[in-house]
Every structure is written in structure tokens, then in C-alpha cells.
Design a protein around this nucleic acid. Structure first.
Length: 337
DNA sequence: CGATGTCAAGGAATC
DNA sequence: GATTCCTTGACATCG
């Protein structure tokens, strides 16, 4: 650890060698307070609506303000069925809620929130199937329209992956590049690309960046699971953050890998009896919380970089709050929200 | 009320 | 070519 308590005595300046202000964010679901929902998740038969989700988000923003969290990923399902091909009655929700969205967006700016979205794994731009690719375009357009309706700035990104390989990686990358280039400007100015844990490591996303200019989100867990080039994480992070245009703060995804095996308490469904057992975890699963030592070491190794951090931990905002405590307890002077 | 069923998608692995 | 798994929680319904 390069910037722990031990440095305080020798470091004459309280502000030298610090990372610039860094945001810590979490994704979608709030666990720290009961009753906060991320989106109207009712089935279509019951008439779910974006207007309900907006009310939920308003309450979540209040919670973010109270906890001092200034980065948050909005659920991609915030407007239910808005792109469902067989439910056209849902397609106008953003227009229907334009005023409420503008008000909500003003609140986000007042609270200095950096917002983002992350379409599901089923949104695949580079699919050989035109139908799949077309629905991906429509889904991205919806995400962009939503963030635009909030009046969100250029920092509010839509995060996606390259997609599938289909047995021919160069051709699959070519398709991504071609389809990306044909996207509406409203989508292209928000879309960013993240390395994934199966198909496209950082080296591949860098190739796509070189051909498209699309900024890269570095995901450290995916990198640790899928790194055939053997690139050190700090270097991979450095190369990804360097893809962002001047004036925009890069972001990275940070999470801790769940141990290969863990102790779990199982409850017998009929008897209610509790037993302690061991449960296998697959490589690449997110752990409940963030390993603070690992995180601090990574920060220390990248103090020359500027980036915001989206945490991906099962315990969501609880993991963020715990990590923030650990950083403070370590005596670090990084300013992290 | 607790338990079980349902939903939603595309890719990859397996056969 | 068809099937299964992956992932996931909340909703919805059943008993």
C-alpha cells in the first residue's frame, strides 16, 4: 500500500500524491433502506409505467443525497416494456413523462449525481441476426432518449459489451464497428464499451476503440477472469482511461471476485432446520462486498489516473458505504464520495 | 402467508 | 438442430 497511514509522517503536504476527487457509485438496487424500489417491475397486464419508476428514483435520489453518494446506475427497466415489439402501447412513455423527467434530471444535477445505464446482456449490437441487432439499436436509442429527457450531461453513459464471437472474432468485431458507426449521434455520444469476462478482453476493446473512438470502461474483475494477453491491471486501466476524450472523467467498474468456495447456511424447507455447508462459486462472480485492501492497493497503483468507480457488489450500496468506511479507517486522504 | 412458479433475453456449450 | 445453462429478483399465483 503506497498511501496508507505510514505515509502521513513523511508526506509534508496534506494534498500531494492524492488521486483527484473520485466518485464511488453502485448499481440499481438499494439495500440500505427498506422500501426503496428501483423500477416499476409489474407485469404488463397490470399497467406498469415510467411515471411510477420516476417516483421511485426521486426517493432513491433523496437517499443518495443523505448518504453522500454521487454516482448511480439507473435500471434499464425504468420504462417497462418501452421497446417490447408486441406492446406498442408502452412505447411512448418517455414522451408522456417528459416534464417529470426534466424535473428529476434537474434534481440529479442539483445533487451532482453522475448517472449511467447498462443494457442487459441480451442487447447485442454485433449479432449476425439483423433482427437482434435492430432491437439492440432500438434499445440503445431508448436509453439515450431517457438520459436526454433528464437533461443529463455527457458524463452520463450507456455501458455495453462488444457482444458475441460467433466463431469468427474479426468478422464479429467488424460488425460491431460498422453498426456502431451507423448509430444515431444521440446514442454514440453516450455509448461506452466494457471488457467482458468471456469473449472480449481489454485488448479487443482497445482495437474497437482505435476504429471507432468509443471510450472504454475498464472492469477489473472481468479483466482478472479474461486476460489472455497477460496485461497487468494497472496498465489495462491506464490504457482504457486514456481512451476518454478531454473534459470527460473516465469510469471503471470495480468488484471483488467471490471465493471459489464459501460457507453458507442452508435452511431445510420442511423442517426449518439450519445447516452449515459449503457452496461452490463460479469464477467471475461478484462477491458481497469489496475487498478494501485490494481496492486501496489498486488506487495507490493508479494515482496518476483520474476516474470514477462503479462498484459491482452483491450488497450494492451497503458495500459502497462499508468500503468508504474502510478507506477512512485506513487514514487515506483520497477524497472519495 | 409461505412456498412455488413465472418471466426475459441471446450466446455458448453440449449433444 | 435442439436443449440446457447462464443470471436474477421481483412479481404473481398457488396451496
Amino acid at each position: 500500500m503506497a498511501a496508507g497511514k505510514d505515509d502521513e509522517a513523511t508526506d509534508p503536504s496534506p494534498t500531494s500524491n492524492l488521486s483527484p476527487p473520485t466518485r464511488l457509485g453502485f448499481a440499481v438496487k438499494v439495500l440500505g433502506r427498506p422500501g426503496l424500489k428501483a423500477n416499476d417491475a409489474r407485469r404488463w397486464q397490470n399497467g406498469p409505467h415510467l411515471s411510477v419508476s420516476i417516483g421511485f428514483l426521486d426517493a432513491i435520489f433523496d437517499y443518495l443525497a443523505e448518504t453522500g453518494i454521487r454516482m448511480y446506475r439507473i435500471s434499464s427497466d425504468v420504462a417497462p416494456y418501452v421497446t417490447h415489439p408486441e406492446l406498442p402501447q408502452f412505447h411512448g412513455q418517455i414522451e408522456e413523462c417528459a416534464e417529470d423527467l426534466a424535473v428529476l434530471g434537474a434534481k440529479a444535477r442539483r445533487l451532482d449525481l453522475r448517472l449511467s445505464m447498462h443494457p442487459s446482456q441480451y442487447i447485442v449490437l454485433n449479432s449476425p441476426e439483423e433482427r437482434v441487432a435492430a432491437s439492440a439499436v432500438a434499445d440503445f436509442a431508448y436509453h439515450a432518449a431517457f438520459l436526454d429527457a433528464l437533461g443529463a450531461g455527457s458524463e452520463a453513459k450507456i455501458v455495453t459489451h462488444v457482444g458475441g464471437v460467433y466463431g469468427d472474432r474479426p468478422a464479429a468485431i467488424d460488425r460491431f464497428v460498422a453498426r456502431y458507426s451507423a448509430l444515431p449521434e444521440a446514442v454514440r455520444r453516450r455509448l461506452v464499451l466494457e471488457n467482458d469476462e468471456i469473449s472480449y478482453p481489454v485488448a479487443d476493446t482497445l482495437l474497437v476503440h482505435e476504429r471507432t473512438g468509443i471510450p472504454l470502461v475498464f472492469d477489473i474483475l472481468h479483466h482478472r477472469v479474461n486476460d489472455p494477453a497477460g496485461m497487468p491491471p494497472e496498465e489495462a486501466c491506464r490504457r482504457c482511461t486514456a481512451t476518454w476524450p478531454p473534459g470527460q472523467t473516465p469510469k471503471i467498474h470495480y468488484s471483488t471476485q467471490r471465493a471459489a468456495e464459501r460457507e453458507v447456511t442452508r435452511r431445510n424447507r420442511t423442517t426449518g432446520e439450519r445447516t452449515v455447508g459449503r457452496q461452490a462459486a463460479k469464477a467471475g462472480q461478484h462477491d458481497d462486498f469489496i475487498d478494501p485492501d485490494d481496492f486501496v492497493a489498486f488506487l495507490a497503483a493508479t494515482t496518476d489516473l483520474r476516474y470514477d468507480v462503479m462498484l459491482e457488489a452483491k450488497q450494492k450500496d451497503l458495500a459502497l458505504l462499508r468500503l468508504r468506511e474502510a478507506i477512512a479507517d485506513a487514514g487515506l486522504r483520497w477524497r472519495i464520495w
